[in-house]
Amino acid sequence: MDIDKNRTLRPTLDSGEHRDAITDLIDHLQRGHDTGDADTYDGVFAGDVLWGSPKGRVLQGFASLNAIHRTQLTGTPASPASVFELAQASAPTDDVVIAQIRRRAINGAFSEMAMYVLVRRDGMWWLAAGQNTPITDLLPAVD
């Protein structure tokens, strides 16, 4: 079997309907941020959610992440005021959605892009994993 030949026959993975799942996630993120309510923000996060912060911290579990979000989402709206918007998405199966969602600070402050993985269980969509990355034009120096 020619491995290189097989790698050129790439499938298209966007096979499912996913707009409702993404809209619901963005709605939870936006409403939670706008009201400073971590429970709303994390409303669709699975109990064993995997999470990566923009500073490289990793953790697992709703309780740990929700406790952090409760300290971060203070004030109404949480600072900085932001807009959550879909950058792009794919649904490799009918029950999995991968979405890149941008949190754009309205005043030009710290903004980030997140990669989210949503999984449908028993007819409901749950956030299984998220990884945030700062949006910046400044990259660290290369040694």
Rank of each mutant, 00 (worst) to 15 (best):
M124F: 08
P77H: 00
P92Y: 13
W125Q: 06
K55M: 07
S79P: 02
A81H: 09
D94T: 14
D122C: 00
L73A: 04
I101G: 06
S64F: 15
L86T: 14
P92E: 14
V97F: 03
A114S: 06
T93P: 09
Q88L: 03
R103C: 01
A109G: 10
R120Y: 06
Q100D: 06
D95V: 10
T93Q: 12
P77R: 08
G123D: 13
D137N: 05
V83Y: 00
T133D: 02
Q100R: 07
L139K: 14
A99R: 12
S82F: 12
D137V: 04
T76Y: 06
G108T: 06
A63T: 00
T136W: 04
I101Y: 03
M124R: 11
L86H: 11
V119R: 14
G123P: 15
I101M: 01
R121W: 00
P92D: 12
L118S: 01
I106S: 11
T76C: 01
P77Q: 00
A63F: 01
P77Y: 07
M113I: 13
A129P: 06
A128R: 13
L118F: 05
R120I: 03
L59I: 00
G130N: 11
G61C: 08
A87Y: 00
V96G: 15
N66Y: 04
A99K: 07
M113K: 06
D122K: 04
N132V: 15
D95K: 02
